[in-house]
């Protein structure tokens, strides 16, 4: 089956300004040669620390940002360079849900208005027909009918996120980019929203790109996980493989650092040196971007040659010199 979404060699550069005249002095590669595929009805987790490029990838897919290079295929069609009027149809099919529920809802509109707006924009629905659909959507996400004329600020964070989800569902999307949908919520409310998202996925056969830095949540929600480091994917595999047998030293460190709520879980904790922001952001010199923080037995090539993302086992890709591609490994 061909994937619903395919991202090939995506790049997004932002200009870096500097100097006295505030001229563009270089490019910052927020997303650097990212490729992945997402099958219909599945959930792919996009994990990485702050600034690793997760949101930028999401926005490029929705074409809220123009990719610098690369290709985005949706349902087999190249959408990388769609014109403005074709984008509208696309935005019916692909929706995005954001982290801060309050900030992503228009505070001057009622709940009914917020959820109904996309119906009007995309399908021209108004009046009682629209109202019926909105009430149906509110019911689906667990809001009550009497909430229709209320304003977002009257709701808790979890309820606001339900409003955001209902709005995203209004146009019957097939793909939803969820950008940290629960990271502003308390754990008991987060559980409600995660369960709601799973139910909706089953009910409407939705495909999710699930952006998060919470590995526990990712483990619960995703079929596959891609790990980002400084704008590059360093490892992709099925969720279970990522959590049980991670290969990239960065993934290993992240998994070991998950604070599990189980005091008996004794795991060797890998504490990384430094921080994302302390490593040089632009690797003009080549070498592995993770090398300055890497805790593995490094090879000479780590400092000089950029490792590419290769298949090291079936369905398991890693970008690390310690892990040669499957074919070479077999020759040895």
């Amino acid at each position: 089956m061909s994937p619903l979404l395919e991202v090939n060699n995506l790049q997004k550069h932002f200009p870096v300004r500097g100097g006295l005249l505030n001229r563009i002095v270089s490019d910052f590669r927020a997303v650097d040669d990212v490729s992945f595929a997402l099958r219909e009805g599945k959930t792919l987790g996009l994990v990485g620390e702050s600034g690793s490029g997760k949101t930028t990838i999401g926005k490029c897919i929705l074409r809220l940002l123009e990719p610098t290079a690369g290709q985005i295929l949706y349902d087999g069609a190249d959408i990388t360079h769609l014109k403005q009027r074709d984008l509208r149809r696309l935005r019916g099919e692909i929706q995005m849900i954001y982290q801060a529920p309050a900030a992503s809802l228009n505070g001057r509109m009622t709940v009914g208005g917020i959820i109904g707006e996309p119906l009007w924009i995309h399908e021209g629905l108004k009046g009682d027909v629209a109202r019926e659909r909105v009430l149906e959507l509110m019911n689906v996400v667990g809001l009550k009918e009497e909430h229709y004329y209320r304003y977002p600020h009257e709701f808790s964070g979890g309820q606001q996120q339900r409003i955001g989800i209902a709005r995203a569902l209004a146009v019957q999307p097939r793909l939803i980019v969820l950008d940290e949908p629960t990271s502003a919520l308390d754990v008991s409310v987060q559980a409600q929203i995660l369960n709601l998202l799973q139910d909706l996925q089953d009910q409407f056969d939705l495909t999710y790109l699930f952006i998060s830095h919470d590995l526990g949540v990712v483990r619960y929600m995703c079929d596959e996980v891609a790990l980002l480091y400084l704008g590059k994917i360093v490892e992709v595999a099925e969720t279970e493989v990522i959590f049980e047998a991670p290969k990239h030293p960065y993934t290993q460190a992240l998994i070991s650092a998950i604070p599990e709520p189980d005091p008996d879980m004794q795991r060797e904790e890998i504490i990384l040196r430094g921080e994302l922001s302390s490593s040089p952001l632009m690797h003009r010199g080549g070498g592995c971007p993770f090398a300055p923080r890497c805790h593995a037995e490094k090879l000479a090539t780590c400092e000089t040659v950029l490792p590419s993302l290769v298949e090291v086992e079936r369905q398991h890709q890693v970008a690390c010199h310690l892990h040669p591609p499957i074919s070479i490994a077999e020759v040895h």
Binding site: G158, V189, Q190, N195, D262
Partner: peptide, 18 residues
Amino acid sequence: AVPQKDISRGGLEGIPGM
């Protein structure tokens, strides 16, 4: 309510209400 290891899909429990 905390997503932990070995909780399978649909197995997470929230606390109802607010």
